[in-house]
Simulated scan of single mutants.
Amino acid sequence: MTTKTPLLKVDSIGIQFGGLKAVSDVNIELNSGELVGLIGPNGAGKTTFFNLLTGVYEPTEGVIALGGEKLNGLAPYRITRKGISRTFQNIRLFNELSVLDNVKVAYHSLAKHSMVSSILRLPSFFSGEREMEEKAIEFLEIFKLEPYLHEKAKNLPYGQQRRLEIARALASNPKLLLLDEPAAGMNPQETHDLMNLIGFIRKKFNLTVLLIEHDMPLVMGVCERIYVLDHGQLIAQGSPEEIRNNPKVIEAYLGEEVS
């Protein structure tokens, strides 16, 4: 009997800054097509963990593998090409660029034309640029952002900026999408719309999604499994119902509501 290789396998991963262990001995597995939550109190190490997965930090211990291929030591742009993309807790758009250009930037990471053809303005450059623009517009139509095509990103309403950041992350054609607190700063209606959007893009693009979020109704409503970090260590994992009733999780949140 063969065992299916998980899309993402994190084996005893950790990182130390000086004498402080920000993340220690964390083991996580994600299978293709799953939507999984990563929760924990502020300072639990969640964003640091995302930074390890995307090459911003190099782990001091353990192994990160995507589809069985080790990612340790790869630069962030190479990890993006391998199939991991992300959003950030604080929106990081190119504010002075148009909505269209923000998405085209992500497509450039997959560009087929060479630097030489770009410098010399060869036909392959122009055909490549046209192809990227067509794909970007198609993407923006899916996210209902086409009306803002030539608007500067900074001028979009907050909820639309979140949509644009997710659209840009998906434009790099990832296998695994990391969402870092996508509902931060949203009102209830925007959060509800976001829940629907996450479910839609997961099915539409056949994605695996790992979601950091403090909005517990959102996490419990969309995630199939949940991992819980506290002080850089994994303290629980399971279904939303199991996590909701786990005494360690309730204690780690110091009385915060987890249901």
Rank of each mutant, 00 (worst) to 15 (best):
I137W: 01
P41E: 05
G68R: 05
G73N: 09
N72F: 12
I119C: 14
N90T: 12
G55Y: 08
E58K: 09
I84C: 07
F88M: 03
D101Y: 14
S85G: 07
G68F: 12
L52R: 03
L120E: 08
L93E: 02
S109Q: 11
V103Q: 01
R81C: 04
L74C: 05
S118V: 13
S109G: 07
S118P: 09
E131A: 05
S118N: 09
V116L: 14
E133I: 09
A111Q: 14
A75V: 14
T60L: 05
H108A: 07
G40H: 08
F49N: 00
K104G: 00
H108Q: 13
K82Y: 13
S127F: 14
G40W: 12
S114I: 14
L120W: 15
F50K: 04
S118K: 13
P41K: 00
T60R: 06
L97D: 02
S98R: 07
N102E: 04
N90G: 03
I137F: 10
F143A: 02
Y107D: 00
L93V: 11
E146N: 03
K46D: 01
V56F: 12
R81N: 08
K144F: 10
M115I: 15
E141A: 02
A106C: 06
N42V: 07
I64P: 15
E61A: 06
A136Y: 05
M132K: 02
A65P: 13
F126T: 09
L149E: 04
Q89E: 04
E146C: 00
Q89N: 07
L93A: 09
L140A: 01
G73Q: 07
V63Y: 12
F88D: 00
A136F: 13
Y77T: 13
T54Y: 12
T48C: 06
S85K: 07
S98I: 10
D101A: 04
A75Y: 12
K152P: 07
E96M: 07
E138M: 03
